[in-house]
């Protein structure tokens, strides 16, 4: 086989075409969704000129407003709690010597990633209904705790990765200088850990903001979040208002993900 100068060892026939098509496919539906959210006509398929009317009608829709506020409250609370819990778990699995039972801890932390969401949702429906009947409390905390649980692994991964990648000399030096473990953590570990914590919190926030299935099963009276509200609407009236809400939610997710991306890159 003769190989000229231009021979590219990395080339595989057709791969580039498939890859570029893949990117088109990934973005075409989303782009169409965004474009049609600015459509003036009531139809979701025919273009009737540029307009912001669907954004306006979404903004004025009381149920959308309430669902949005509720989504943000749940996502904020769940991401703060999950990140706090994840920092502890990450420290325990990186800053102490390996111990027996570590595998169990990993299994429990990663459980929400492995067990199908619908199974957890069913379990929580039954369990929380029992508690609700026993205590009479029906507030938002059920959703917050449920969201916190499945957000923990998402916060845990970037934080643990950051801890593993950190230089231990400074922490050891602090310990040699008689800093208490807490002082060492606050003054030495935490400042280096911040990008990991922020990344973890943002991931947790996006995950919570997007959840449909568990929320749908756990929610009580008047506790629709933006995604469950949309799911309810999808089966009835498909107006471009849903496109507008989607686009707004999309923008939030994209901003957070890009921030996450650059934060987690910054360590390299």
């Amino acid at each position: 086989m003769a190989r000229g100068k231009g021979f590219d060892v990395t080339r595989q026939p057709g791969f580039t075409t498939v890859a570029l098509l893949c990117f088109v496919m990934l973005y075409l539906p989303i782009v169409l969704l965004v474009v049609f959210s600015f459509n003036d006509s009531t139809s979701v398929a025919e273009w009737g000129g540029f307009s912001l009317r669907w954004y306006q009608s979404a903004l004025e829709n009381e149920r959308v407003q309430e669902a949005t506020i509720r989504s943000v409250i749940i996502a904020t609370a769940a991401s703060i709690l999950a990140t706090g819990a994840a920092v502890g778990a990450a420290l325990a699995t990186t800053r102490t010597r390996p111990w027996r039972g570590q595998t169990v801890v990993f299994a429990i932390v990663n459980q929400p990633l492995m067990v199908p969401e619908i199974v957890t949702a069913v379990a929580l429906l039954i369990f929380f209904a029992m508690i609700k009947v026993a205590t009479g409390y029906t507030g938002l905390w059920y959703l917050i705790i449920a969201h916190t649980a499945f957000c923990i692994p998402f916060a845990f991964l970037p934080i643990r990765a950051r801890l593993q990648g950190m230089d231990l000399t400074l922490e050891q030096a602090a310990a040699d200088l008689y800093a208490t473990p807490w002082q060492a953590f606050r003054r030495v570990t935490l400042p280096q850990l911040w990008p990991g914590i922020l990344a973890g919190a943002m991931l947790a926030f996006v995950i919570s903001l997007d959840d449909v299935v568990i929320t749908e099963f756990v929610k009580s009276a008047g506790q629709d979040t933006l995604p469950t509200y949309m799911l309810g609407q999808l089966r009835r009236v498909v107006t471009p208002e849903i496109n507008a809400i989607s686009t707004a939610l999309l923008a939030v997710s994209v901003l957070l993900v890009m921030a996450f991306f650059f934060l987690s890159r910054s360590r390299k």
């Binding site: 149920r63 309430e66 429906l125 039954i126 929380f128 209904a129 508690i131 609700k132 009947v133 205590t135 009479g136 409390y137 029906t138 009580s220 009276a221 008047g222 506790q223 629709d224 309810g232 089966r235």
Partner: peptide, 24 residues
């Protein structure tokens, strides 16, 4: 007034029977 939707009698019955729903 806050309205929550259901799509079938059974969905409503199941949710209310489970208890702790918060509906009036």
């Amino acid at each position: 007034v806050t309205i929550t939707d259901y799509d079938s009698n059974d969905t409503a019955l199941a949710k209310i029977k489970a208890g702790g729903h918060g509906f009036d």
